[in-house]
Simulated scan of single mutants.
Amino acid sequence: MRDPRVLVDGRGLVESPRWHLGRWYVSDWSAGEVLAVTPDGEVEVAARVDSLPLCTAWHPEGRMLIVSSREGKVLALERDGSLTTYADLGKPGWNDVVVDGRGNCYVNGAGFDPMSGEEFRPGGIVLVRPTGAVVEVAADVAFPNGMAVTPDNGTLIVADSYRHELVAFDIGADGVLSARRTWADLGDGTPDGICIDAEGAVWYADVPHRVCARVAEGGAVLERVEVDRGAFACALGGPDGRTLCVVTAEWRGMSELVGPGSGQVLTVDVDVPGAGWP
């Protein structure tokens, strides 16, 4: 057991933590803001996008990609602070995003709007190639959430929250996914955001169980970091890659989402550094 430290307090539904060039980047879905946070907790607004969900990834060529779910687009944050269209996904309703070391961008989405009372339909994953072309590469992921790519660019791991498992796919030379399999059966665990470490284990955040758990392939639990509210996502970073950033908030259900001002950014030291993407 490890005790986390509060880096940022008083936010809304915080998600999508990423480490880049000495700062943490997190999305406050309630405010429609992407925040840049120093290791000392100083906060700056890096971008404003009216979208919920609002997830981000860093492209290897240096730009931040932002999924504007409501517009059905992937946006790029340019060096002058402007936002341009990186890819048009053709419809709204997208969730998480990860970009591998070759510039392949994977975006997932549920097959229904859980906030509107629509009938359940499974979701899927699309690939945005470096050319901007969009290709569907996976279907029948019940509720896709966090995604991570192994450091060899060979495997995409996806959190399926509704099926309580981590799903893996082989990544082909063309970015297309194949060889789908259950990477870890989590029992009653409900994975949201995830990240990979240098020993090949996955950390996953779990909202209803208020925990971040580190699991091996197959599902054996190696470590746990307990928090006092819902854990939405986690990422490894910091100067030596051994800081686990966890974003949390008081979960109140789909109708209300989170308690106002309950969002926090936490950090905790771990032994094994991060690897792969994000």
Rank of each mutant, 00 (worst) to 15 (best):
M1V: 09
R2A: 13
R2L: 08
V8F: 08
D9C: 02
G12M: 04
H20F: 15
L21A: 12
G22T: 09
W24G: 05
V26C: 04
W29A: 09
A31Y: 13
V34C: 12
A36T: 07
R48N: 05
R48F: 07
L54W: 15
C55I: 08
A57T: 14
M64P: 09
I66R: 12
I66H: 07
S69F: 13
L75V: 06
L77R: 14
L77E: 10
E78H: 11
D80L: 07
D80E: 07
D80R: 13
D80I: 14
G81C: 09
L83F: 12
G93A: 07
N95P: 01
D96H: 01
D100M: 01
G101A: 14
M115V: 06
M115P: 00
S116V: 04
G117I: 03
R121V: 06
P122C: 03
G132W: 15
G132C: 14
A133E: 12
V135G: 01
V135N: 05
V137A: 04
A139L: 12
G146M: 05
A148R: 04
P151M: 15
P151D: 11
T155W: 11
Y162P: 00
L166K: 04
I171C: 13
R180Q: 15
W183R: 04
P191Y: 08
D192F: 14
I194S: 15
G200T: 09
A201K: 08
V202K: 02
W203C: 03
V207Y: 06
V211I: 12
A213H: 06
R224D: 04
V225D: 02
E226P: 00
V227W: 02
C234A: 03
A235S: 09
T243E: 05
V246A: 01
G261V: 02
V265S: 00
T267R: 00
V268C: 03
D269F: 00
D271L: 12
